[in-house]
Amino acid sequence: MADQLGRAGQTETRAGGPGNAPLVMLPGLMGTAEVFVPQLRALSGVLPAMVAPLLGGDRIERIADHLLTQLPARFALAGLSMGGIVAMEILRRAPERVSRLCLMSTSPLPDTPTQAAEWEPLIIAARSGRLEDVLRGCLPVDSLAPSPQRLDILNTIYQQGCSLGPELFVAQARALQRRTDQQAALRRFKGPTLILCGAQDRLTPLKRHEFMAALMPNARLCVIEKAGHLPTLEQPDQVTGAMAAWLAEVAPDQDERPDPSRETATTAAGGAQPAAPSLPPLTLTNPLKTS
Rank of each mutant, 00 (worst) to 15 (best):
C162L: 12
S261L: 15
L54W: 10
Q238V: 05
Q4N: 03
P252N: 08
V141L: 14
V86M: 05
M104A: 13
L103G: 02
C102T: 12
A251P: 01
H209R: 08
R136T: 02
A94E: 09
A272F: 11
L215E: 00
L206F: 11
D3F: 03
A33F: 09
R202T: 14
L284P: 01
L144M: 13
G228S: 03
Q159M: 04
P48Q: 02
L279P: 04
T156L: 14
P287V: 03
Q70M: 14
L139K: 02
Q149V: 11
W119M: 08
A49I: 06
T285Y: 13
T266E: 14
R202P: 00
F75W: 06
I224Y: 09
A76I: 00
A251W: 03
A126G: 04
S105C: 06
A268M: 07
R41E: 07
G137K: 04
N286Q: 12
L279Q: 10
L282H: 11
Q10P: 02
P110G: 05
P287I: 13
L40H: 05
E120M: 08
L122V: 01
Q200V: 00
E249V: 04
M50G: 03
G56V: 11
R97M: 08
W119S: 01
Q160K: 05
R59V: 08
R74N: 05
A219E: 08
W119D: 00
G161F: 06
L282C: 08
I85M: 15
A275H: 10
Q39T: 03
E61A: 14
T156G: 15
M30T: 01
L144Y: 07
C138Y: 08
T180L: 09
T232W: 12
Q10E: 09
T283E: 11
G228W: 07
A173N: 10
R62L: 10
L186T: 03
D255R: 08
G17E: 07
S163D: 06
L55D: 13
L144E: 11
L54P: 02
V86R: 07
R92I: 06
V86Y: 02
R130H: 11
N155S: 03
L247H: 10
D133E: 10
R130S: 12
Q160I: 00
M216N: 04
T193S: 11
A94H: 07
L23M: 06
G161D: 02
P258S: 01
G161V: 12
L101A: 07
R188Q: 15
G161P: 01
C197Q: 04
G129V: 04
S128N: 14
P27S: 09
F189Q: 00
L67S: 07
P95F: 12
R59S: 03
A126T: 13
